[in-house]
Design a protein around this nucleic acid. Structure first.
Lengths: 208, 208
DNA sequence: ACGATAAGCTACGCGACCGTATCTAAGTGG
DNA sequence: CCACTTAGATACGGTCGCGTAGCTTATCGT
């Protein structure tokens, strides 16, 4: 049959190349139309491939999405330098924001938001993608400085570990944009450090 | 024409009564199927009314939803007692959690989450529903105690005002349930109070 | 009691996506 | 260079929501 001209000659993607293209397409599709409108047709259109080719490998859009997430780059973990708590916390939050920028993170957010509606997806997300789970970002940094004695470890409760991440998410939702470096610094100075027993000094108060 | 028997006799709802029923139906529908799957057919089915009756008043599901939100009870504001900062903060967070429990809040969350996809809806939400905007919940309480001199008002930055709300939302997302009273107390003791210059005492640290 | 109004029912053509079947042809490896 | 694998094109019947049209009838106001 006559093939639609893509570029000029007939170039047919296979295997790995096609797979990547499809993975990219799902993530883009989720970002654009949302989890609720994710369809095989839509993905096929965006990936410029045939529906048939999708059904050959996956049985529904969710399966495909999970596969794409499984394949996405893992989250980079912070590695505390060891002598500057404030700087390391800011770095940790910066890493968080960078991850949140990725297409994969976008899809993950969508799934978490609608997890009641797609329980299987959410569950599989934990099992197949979030294996590590638990402490990342500021958690890692805070534990490091507690072990080293800079922080009183009795202050490190589950709530305290969440302060930084919680504020980044809140800012993200409220302002619908990613926090700036200064805002991350403010989170560290005004919320995290006081909670772990480092009082704010005059300088921080003045510039706030 | 033969009417479906609802109960036994033909009872036809009109005006206010019907309106309420439809409003309830939209919110329930959003909760169940999500913003992306919100359809006139679905709402009509759930409200046990005819599609025609819906189109007579609204031109699409989003319009209808906005109308329902507009009508929903407003948010109750905290009224600080004035002599117990800690208790008033916990009360404020409790009010927040209570609001989050309502069907309307559920829909608002959905809209905020997908605001990129439904910019008109989000915008109208601000204009028609969130008129007050700005300071609610812990904000109100913190300002009160600052005016009264209990708190150093230089510490009350935008970030600090967000700590409580941010942690409630984070807990909500992470655990997929509403925080308990003890968790709210922990947020106040371990995150908000340190940030506003009230250091944690031995008792709070010990029980943490 | 009797309009006027508003609600309800049915049915329609339209388009989107579904999941599958069938065929063609491009790319690959021996 | 040939055979095999796999991607691509197309078409199908089915379901669902759309938005509208037409008609019937319950309910309200007077």
């Amino acid at each position: 049959m006559a093939e639609q001209v893509r570029g000029r000659g007939p170039e047919r993607r296979r295997g790995e190349v096609l797979l990547r293209a499809v993975h990219e397409a799902v993530l883009a599709e989720v970002a654009e139309v949302g989890l609720g409108q994710l369809t095989m047709e839509g993905i096929a259109r965006r990936a410029a491939t045939a529906k048939t080719s999708l059904y050959r490998r996956w049985s529904n859009p969710q399966d495909l999405l999970l596969d794409a997430l499984h394949d996405a780059h893992p989250v980079e973990e912070p590695s505390p330098s060891g002598d500057d708590l404030r700087a390391d916390l800011i770095t940790a939050l910066t890493l968080l924001v960078e991850w949140l920028t990725s297409p994969a993170a976008n899809a993950v957010k969508a799934i978490m938001t609608e997890r009641r509606r797609y329980p299987d997806l959410a569950e599989a997300l934990y099992e197949r993608v979030f294996d590590p789970r638990g402490g990342t970002f500021t958690h890692t940094v805070l534990r490091h400085y507690a072990e080293q004695g800079t922080i009183d470890s009795r202050l490190l409760t589950p709530i305290v570990f969440q302060i930084g991440e919680a504020l980044v998410f809140k800012l993200l939702v409220d302002l619908d944009r990613f926090p700036t470096h200064d805002e991350l610094a403010a989170i560290v100075d005004q919320a995290i450090l006081p909670a772990v027993g480092v009082p704010r000094d005059a300088a921080t108060v003045a510039e706030a």
